[in-house]
């Protein structure tokens, strides 16, 4: 760290700008996530939601601005994906991305917090503790009866849950969840909301989502992005009554 930062936030974004060929995907984006919080991020297509996640996870480098993690202790703009993952930031992609050829159980085993170096994976042996942890996660994500199924054969909703389970297995401090309920049935959507609330008991969660019913169900603070910066922030009712939000996103 070059300069001291005094912030109590787990994730601190200040003045983040990212441009692609002159198009500003993020335009001086600033917001903070407090430890233990769950935050929903909404906004129209192209508002910069996914780019924001790319910046936090190290996939994209910001052109300007600060991204700090854990009360300013780490500057995420200087680390790569692997280092950021090791710090404890887990990410769920928009499209469910699980290892299709591996079983549900192996997907979780690969995600479990463990030594990730080549030598240790070559000589790795499963331990009772880890099996227990996998069992727990399977129960949380409601896939216990499908543990030996190949992940590619799961339904869309089950893949989404498996991916959330893989995030849990990493034991991250912060979970970034990109559109977890896209393509889910109403029942699955409500179950996913339950699941995220359960996870939020011990972890900080940031959810990007379009589904307003789902966001309402979560009942957390909402940030609405538009053209790469924050348009409104507050409870779901405050945000959905905001005139600008109605204009650019929710529609009249």
């Amino acid at each position: 760290m070059t300069e001291p930062h005094t912030t109590s936030a787990l994730l601190y974004l200040d003045g983040i700008t990212v441009s692609f060929d002159g198009f500003k995907a993020l335009n001086e984006l600033s917001f903070v996530i407090e430890p233990g919080e769950m935050r929903a991020i909404i906004g129209p297509n192209g508002a910069g939601k996914t780019t924001m996640m790319d910046v936090v996870t190290g996939k994209t480098r910001p052109d300007a601005g600060d991204v700090f993690f854990e009360e300013g202790a780490y500057d995420l703009s200087k680390l790569d994906e692997t280092q950021i993952a090791e710090l404890g930031i887990g990410r769920k992609f928009q499209k469910p991305t699980v290892f299709e050829m591996h079983t549900v159980e192996d997907n979780l085993q690969l995600a479990l917090k463990n030594d990730r170096r080549v030598r240790s994976t070559l000589l790795w042996q499963s331990s009772g503790d880890q099996e227990k942890r996998v069992d727990e996660i399977l129960a949380t994500i409601r896939l216990s009866n499908l543990r030996s199924r190949v992940a590619g054969s799961l339904s869309h909703g089950q893949k989404q849950w498996l991916e959330i389970g893989m995030l849990l297995a990493q034991e991250p401090k912060l979970l970034l969840v990109d559109e977890p309920v896209a393509g889910m049935t109403d029942t699955e959507t409500m179950q996913t909301a339950e699941l995220l609330k359960e996870i939020n008991r011990d972890r900080t969660v940031v959810v990007v989502e379009h589904d307003m019913a789902f966001v309402r169900e979560l009942g957390v603070k909402v940030t609405c992005l538009h053209e790469g910066s924050v348009l409104a922030e507050g409870t779901i009712d405050q945000v959905s009554e905001n005139e600008r939000v109605v204009e650019v996103y929710l529609g009249r």
Binding site: T97, M101, H102, Q109, V118
Partner: peptide, 28 residues
């Protein structure tokens, strides 16, 4: 058949996912 091999298959099928899980794909 080792866990290393499972990581390899993971890299083959979803390289970005493997990286976000914290594996140094290039070393593997």
């Amino acid at each position: 058949t080792s866990k290393f091999g499972k990581v390899l298959v993971a890299v083959r099928d979803a390289e970005a996912r493997t990286r976000f899980l914290g594996y140094r794909v290039e070393n593997y």
